[in-house]
Design a protein around this nucleic acid. Structure first.
Lengths: 186, 186
DNA sequence: TACTAAACTGACTAATCAGTCTAATAATAA
DNA sequence: TTATTATTAGACTGATTAGTCAGTTTAGTA
């Protein structure tokens, strides 16, 4: 990716999160990125294309860190906590990216295409869930309820640490995870 | 409230949820409500005042249904489930209102004043939580974690039923609540 | 060195924005 | 009835918007 393209995306990411999609003008993005408006439209044909590109970029940036497979010598709980923690740490280290994904996901901008791409990302979790149920470690509830519960818990944990950053530590992380785990486990 | 004022608020509520604050023009709100733009600005001095009025109105509309006190002859679990269910049903019956509260709450529009008003709303929950801990029914984790967990669970349950409205029923509601309850209870 | 294509610029435009203003109408009171 | 006030209308304004375009700079190639 070219340097100016990168700068445009970084500026757009920050401004979109702080001021919303419509609240941010292309002129402001270009100014913040230190480029001319023409340059912005050279790389992204429309504002909407910029928004969608940014979504795919941030989502890829997040899920690329979640790729590692489960370690067979560890328990389901340990493995789940590993994945759960990765999401927490990613969002603490990349607050704008995480916030952007959240905002975008509940906005009218999301196209059915990008929605589909997100769905497939849950396949790995489905495998874990099925194994957990089979081994009598997890409750047998509709998978879609389980996945919403998983995400909801991650998001609320992140909200907590965003509100009270000074509380970030192993003890509170463990307690937040225990709430989640005791909910899903048998 | 005058009829046209009401119409303006209803139109604004729907459009804000569907297209965002900046994405919705005052002209479109007036057109949808069937009034002239002048009428809109007669009732609301600015667009921002309209947004804030709408927030206070929807929030009041939601919390007025949650006012009932806990019933002493019922268990903590039953009481909590009653409150939890009320939120679920409110959002299913008033999807725009609930969505608007969510969007507004994570937007730059929210002022410190309205933020304070929301905080006090959690006082009732704090009392319940303290009693639950004292009676050895609830885990002793920081209250702020508990409250985020409570909200997160409600929101993810609502997300689930919004995605799959045909799944709305006592069985799935019970299962979703059991996830929550098993997380918080000892 | 000369040539070419891509990267880049910023002034510009048509459309749209929030908000104003004057005037018309409806409601109420004397 | 007449006077007064609250309500409604929509054309209008200056500012801002997304996007264009004609031209300049940069980088690679032969």
């Amino acid at each position: 990716m070219k340097e100016k393209e990168q700068k445009i995306m970084e500026a757009a990411l920050q401004l979109f999160v702080e001021k919303g999609f419509h609240g941010t003008s292309t002129a402001e993005i270009a100014r913040t990125a230190g480029v001319a408006t023409g340059t912005l439209f050279h790389y992204f044909k429309t504002k909407e294309e910029l928004i969608n590109s940014l979504y795919l970029y941030t989502k890829e940036s997040m899920f690329s860190q979640m790729k590692e497979h489960f370690e067979v010598d560890k328990s389901l709980k340990e493995n789940l906590k590993g994945l759960w923690s990765k999401f927490i740490y990613f969002s603490m280290e990349n607050p704008y990216k995480f916030q952007f994904i959240l905002i975008f996901h509940t906005s009218p901008y999301i196209t059915s295409l990008t929605k589909e791409q997100l769905e497939t990302q849950t396949d790995a979790l489905l495998t874990v869930y099925k194994k957990g149920v089979h081994d009598n470690e997890l409750k047998e509830v509709p998978f879609e309820i389980m996945i919403e519960y998983f995400w909801g818990n991650i998001i609320s944990t992140i909200n907590y640490f965003n509100k009270y950053p000074e509380k970030l530590g192993d003890k509170n992380l463990d307690q937040a995870f225990e709430l989640f785990w005791d909910g899903v486990s048998l």
